[in-house]
Design a protein around this nucleic acid. Structure first.
Lengths: 206, 206
DNA sequence: ATACTATTTAATAGACCTATTAATACGCAA
DNA sequence: TTGCGTATTAATAGGTCTATTAAATAGTAT
């Protein structure tokens, strides 16, 4: 058996699986192909992970949570609200840039695979409530002191989420839309990052 | 053979295929299942459409174009720019609501299926340029007369597209985010529609 | 009715895939 | 070295899927 890293076989399988799932989606990825990439026998994939579905879950379990709620995590820094929010939006964007193929994979699975959707829901369905509430109280304070307009936290967060995530889900279209500028994708992404922040901050004006 | 409509068999197959592809994605949908839904022999699917891929293309060919560029179509009404834009954003949203499962299907196929991506690109890749240019000139006129801030058409259009499309791709999350309100999804969608328009219009302020 | 065409069916070849099983190789402690 | 647990392999059962073929049926024009 040939391994590329000095990782354990189990780790190698997870890494190969992650790359393939992200590239081709769940349905189009086979355990045979995962094994071929790792350079091991296909039975090993089942030896370590029992089933393809289980492998998928193990690979993405943690990523799912951080993907869904990285935006909601309260940064501990003690900055004025607006600056803190700008930072959060940017951080969220950067996190997505590093995992740019994750959103389309997860949303596709959730949409086409009822079972997985329920599983994820059970896992993380309870999280947003408390975090949104905390955000709401921050927003209320700002509103009271006249620095922003009255704002619903859930709605705001979903808007940020939409703008940032769609930059990566829509990257094929983004290329088309930005064809005028002939810029490399990286530059376009930087522009989107700035524009997303601007859009959101603008929307808070009293 | 049992048909539900008095449509031709060919139409029935296309309708069943559309519904199944939208529900379960391309990879998880089999020609066998399509035939089962229609109530005909599986060979008929190939008799009329030769291959599953071909069937997919025939079903979604037109929808792909209207999906990608419905936003760009210039409405002929002769309204002030801002009112026209508000209308366009709303129309785009409404079109998506009627085809709410289309975005995730198309983006997933484009991301996981290189061939299809190239095919679509060849089909529609040339469209945006001229239309964005027209939009840009409208924006420039508004800018010159001081009614909006300097605005890049492609960027604006992509933002609108992001907010509207993500409402439907992200509907599972939207439910979570909006769990506080306990509103039915339809009400939440109306809120998003209004909020998307507000966000964009706000971003144009000089 | 006859002949010809279009539609539909049954049957199946040929791939490929998941998961399991039984056998083999390996590493290491006693 | 022997023995034992872990890792790995080959082989394959059993399933599903796409696409094709040849035969049967329905429809229509003459």
């Amino acid at each position: 058996m040939i391994r590329t890293q000095n990782n354990t076989t189990e780790q190698c399988i997870m890494e190969a699986a992650e790359a393939l799932f992200l590239d081709k989606g769940y349905a189009r990825t086979s355990t045979i192909e995962i094994a071929r990439v790792v350079g091991c026998n296909q039975a090993l994939v089942h030896y370590y992970f029992r089933s393809k579905e289980n492998l998928f879950k193990q690979v993405f379990e943690n990523k799912i949570k951080s993907f869904c709620f990285s935006l909601l995590e309260i940064s501990e820094e003690d900055l004025p609200f607006k600056e803190k929010l700008e930072k959060r939006i940017g951080n969220h964007f950067d996190m997505l840039k590093v995992n740019s193929k994750l959103p389309i994979l997860l949303f596709n699975e959730v949409h086409t695979n009822q079972d997985l959707a329920r599983k994820i829901y059970a896992d993380v369905g309870h999280l947003p409530l408390s975090i949104i509430a905390r955000m709401q109280s921050e927003l209320d304070v700002e509103y009271e002191s006249g620095r922003i307009c009255k704002t619903d936290a859930a709605s705001l967060l979903f808007s940020i989420f939409s703008l940032n995530v769609m930059t990566f889900i829509g990257s094929p279209l983004l290329r088309l839309f930005a064809e005028n500028s002939k810029e490399p994708l990286d530059v376009i992404l930087e522009q989107r990052r700035a524009e997303n922040i601007r859009l959101i901050m603008n929307s808070l004006n009293p």
